[in-house]
Amino acid sequence: MARTPSARKTSPAKKTATKKAPRPRKQTQPRPALASPFDLRGGLPTRTTTWMTDLQGYATLAALIAGITTPTIQAWHDHHDGTTTRTLNDGTHLHYTLTTRTLSWQTLCPMGAVHEYVLRNPADTDAAQADAESCTSPHWTPPPTNTGTHLAARLQTAHKAAADTQPMSIREIADGITARADTEAPKEHPQP
């Protein structure tokens, strides 16, 4: 049997596309624009961290060897002359000299004088604290004022003054005043 074409041509069935709901896109937060390190429109980048000086490092190590922990290295004040100082929590001072590699501890005794001790190890530190706390000798020192960079000059003045003066009894003072009153004429106060 022969096939005859039908008058009606049939075409294959068309598929109707079903519309799918669009997937929600993942929303990302916009990122802040980062400046390129080569972008010089904002100026050159600046360093925001503080670095320690070599002298501060040496002083911190010397204090650690002497048994004193100084956790904040930048608290050492570098005088840019080979010396650095640091005030401790109790008001005493550490002084480090690079040329001699010495660490000194400066403190006021109960009598009001400034004592200075060289610290090389924890035993020196303990002995210095005990000596300063047990001092009962009368001293002549100027009242403490600026305890920063001028402390060494004040210490020299205090040592000279202490060597020039000796403690006197009230009787010796009265005898001295009486002897002067008999031989000296009264003097006016010096003008500033």
Rank of each mutant, 00 (worst) to 15 (best):
E184L: 14
D81E: 02
T69C: 01
L108D: 06
H139T: 02
K19W: 06
D81V: 03
P30C: 00
T4N: 10
K187H: 15
M52G: 06
R25D: 12
T100L: 03
R47L: 07
P37F: 01
A33D: 13
T69Y: 03
R41F: 12
T60M: 06
Q29T: 15
I170E: 12
A113N: 00
T4L: 12
A66G: 09
A181K: 06
I170F: 08
P167E: 11
Q156L: 10
E184A: 14
P24I: 14
A2H: 12
N121H: 05
T4M: 08
D78L: 04
C109G: 05
M1C: 01
T145V: 10
T85E: 05
E188G: 15
T69R: 02
A128Y: 08
T50E: 12
A2G: 13
T165F: 12
L44R: 07
T60G: 07
H80D: 08
D131Q: 13
K15P: 09
L44G: 12
L155S: 10
K187V: 15
L103A: 03
T49A: 14
T60H: 05
T183W: 08
Q29C: 07
A127V: 01
I65Y: 00
D175G: 02
P30K: 09
K14T: 00
I170P: 01
R120D: 07
T125N: 07
K26G: 01
L103Y: 02
T92Y: 03
Q56V: 07
R154P: 02
A132P: 05
H115F: 05
A163N: 11
F38K: 05
A63H: 02
A132V: 10
D126N: 07
I65R: 06
A66M: 04
T18V: 15
A128N: 11
A132F: 07
A17I: 05
W140M: 07
A158N: 05
R171M: 04
Y58F: 11
P71S: 13
T165L: 13
H93W: 01
P144K: 05
L44V: 13
S6P: 14
D39Q: 08
T141R: 02
H79M: 04
D39K: 12
T83S: 00
T87K: 01
A123F: 01
Q56A: 11
Q156N: 10
I177C: 13
A174V: 10
L94G: 02
T107M: 05
